[in-house]
Amino acid sequence: MAGEHRTSRRRTACALLVALLLLVFVSSGGYGGGGVKASEGVAAATETRRALAAATPTTPEARLRAALTSRNKTVLRLTSDILLTSDLPPMTCPNLTVVGNCRTRDGRWRPCKIDGGKKFSGFLWANQDGVPRLELVNFHFTNFRRDIASMPGVIVVRNCLVTKSMVDDGQFGAYELTIERSTFTGNNGVLIGGMYVNVHLKGVVFRSNTGGPLISLYRGGVSGERCRFEANRGRAVEVSKGDAMFFSSSFVKNSGGAVKFGFDGTGVFCHCRFAENYVTSSGGRSTVQHVYFGGITDGSGGVQFCKKRPRVGVVLESPDLASYIKDSCNECPK
């Protein structure tokens, strides 16, 4: 019996030794330089990981640039401010949403700042096929000297602040441009402009801007609900061969006048307030001008005021246009 136990123990020990040798053999990759091959594989894997890490954008600006050039629908959330180091790349992403979620030191929410550095451009389309869509939410755009967002598609701007920017031909422009709960203050030049542009404003404030018209459209239209144009140095709105409709909005203390309809303009003002808007002649004389109505070449629906027009400040290109100014609420929401 004792001999059998010794034989059994020897067999077990031999089996364990063989298994260990096989394990060493397999892990070494075979005879000869197998150990070198395994180490080379580990090194290659390490380099691959390093390359992937280097290719992954880490800074907020790099992440924004990568999102703009994505070929797929993308939602990017940023938690830090961005000071641009160059123009943003042309947007090739067909549908991009960028959301700012920054915090103050005490944890309160604030819009993330994107600073144009007084020379760089923002979100522009790459002139490729398709109708792009861009949505910008919770940002403070400042110090732009070229377009902030302009493309032949759809742009939506929500909860944004725009300051200290100066663009001659329009800081924002799109075939369909929607701006909600946002403020433009301390800017210079045209803020919204273009041809064949439809603009939808809701809860937007334009205050203390210069060099207007702030909104300048040709063969386009603008509708505004609960908007305020206050203390701007330059005309607030100018539309030719297009229309402007404002509801429950106010135009107060704007030099250069409040709203001008060029040739073939149509306007509707529902329960809007006009006060202290004026233009100054070359001789230095200031006169009240809330709404200016220009000439007609192809036709116009005229201008309607609900419930009634301002007592003064409705100026006509010529007296024979008086029939185009009406007191009516037919076009206003019930």
Rank of each mutant, 00 (worst) to 15 (best):
G3T: 10
H5Y: 08
S8E: 15
S8P: 00
R10E: 15
T12C: 06
A13R: 14
L17F: 08
V18T: 14
L21T: 13
L22Y: 09
V36S: 12
A43F: 03
T46G: 07
R49G: 14
A51W: 00
A51C: 01
L52I: 13
A53Q: 13
A54V: 09
A55M: 08
A55G: 11
T56Y: 03
P60Y: 11
A67Q: 06
T69R: 07
N72G: 04
K73D: 12
I82N: 03
I82L: 07
L83A: 15
L83N: 14
L83D: 15
P89A: 11
C93D: 12
L96T: 02
L96F: 02
G100Q: 08
R103T: 15
T104Y: 05
G107H: 06
R108N: 14
W109T: 11
P111F: 04
C112M: 03
G122A: 12
G122P: 02
L124Y: 02
N127H: 13
Q128E: 15
D129P: 10
G130W: 05
L134F: 02
H140P: 02
H140G: 04
T142N: 07
R145E: 14
R146F: 10
V157M: 08
R158T: 12
C160V: 13
C160G: 15
K164H: 14
V167R: 02
L177M: 07
T178Y: 06
F184S: 06
G186Y: 07
G189K: 02
N198K: 05
N198M: 01
V204Q: 02
R207K: 13
R207P: 01
S208H: 13
T210E: 13
L217A: 04
F229M: 07
A231L: 11
R233G: 12
G234R: 06
E238V: 06
V239Q: 02
V239D: 05
K241M: 07
A244W: 00
S248H: 13
V252P: 05
V252Y: 01
A258T: 11
K260N: 10
D264I: 06
G265D: 08
R273P: 00
F274K: 02
N277C: 10
S281D: 15
G283I: 04
S286M: 13
T287P: 00
V288G: 02
V291W: 05
T297C: 01
G302T: 08
K307D: 15
V312T: 15
E317G: 11
A322H: 04
I325E: 09
S328Q: 11
C332G: 11
P333Y: 05
